[in-house]
Write a protein that binds this DNA or RNA. Sequence first.
DNA 1: CGTTCGTGTTAGTCATGGCTAACGCGTTAG
DNA 2: CTAACGCGTTAGCCATGACTAACACGAACG
Lengths: 103, 103
Amino acid sequence: MTNTNDSWTALGDTMRRAIFELLVEDPRSVTELARALPVTRSAVSQHLKVLKGAGLVVDTPAGKHRIYRVDPNGLAPLRADLDRYWMKALAAYKAAVEQPQEE
Amino acid sequence: MTNTNDSWTALGDTMRRAIFELLVEDPRSVTELARALPVTRSAVSQHLKVLKGAGLVVDTPAGKHRIYRVDPNGLAPLRADLDRYWMKALAAYKAAVEQPQEE
DNA sequence: CGTTCGTGTTAGTCATGGCTAACGCGTTAG
DNA sequence: CTAACGCGTTAGCCATGACTAACACGAACG
């Protein structure tokens, strides 16, 4: 839970990233999301379950509706991974440029 | 190509992320990667093709071997997306906290 | 040369998971 | 209380893609 692995695979799917992008712009309900996307409400609901499991979104019951919004905390592990990749890659690239005949 | 979409889906796969993590630590050849992973050399080669297509890794012929290393440029679009998510999510969260009865 | 090593590619199988349709539950309004 | 709405869940189908095995090619080395 809240595993880094889940976050990557969650946003690895195109449809889920589309849903996430919509939620980043504005919090919405399930039906609103389904109306903006070429899939049924059921599919959206299942995707939201995955995103919620990864800690990327949170849901708030609001009357009849249920509003989904992005959770900044869920993005933190992704940023951590990406920063680590970034630094290591940059360091390796720099080292390779400075010493081409190394290794 | 070098599409943002490709980058996310490329790293969305567990095995590909494992390969990428290994390459982040140290540049390696295909056989070395295959030896460190529970899949065949062929599978690794196909995954590397995807990662290369996404601009996340580059290959350098080195004698008999072919060394794969991560490409910092490929990570840039991912960082851009993630930063955008981050800022928007944080702004929305802040706004929600400051004005709970909004919307 | 021919052989061996390292790799890419293809065909083909199989599993993962994304999708729809149908149902069940809770909540709200009349 | 009854009806309608919004949503989650399940079963089942189907497409995507991940994997292995086999083959083909080029480079290095004797």
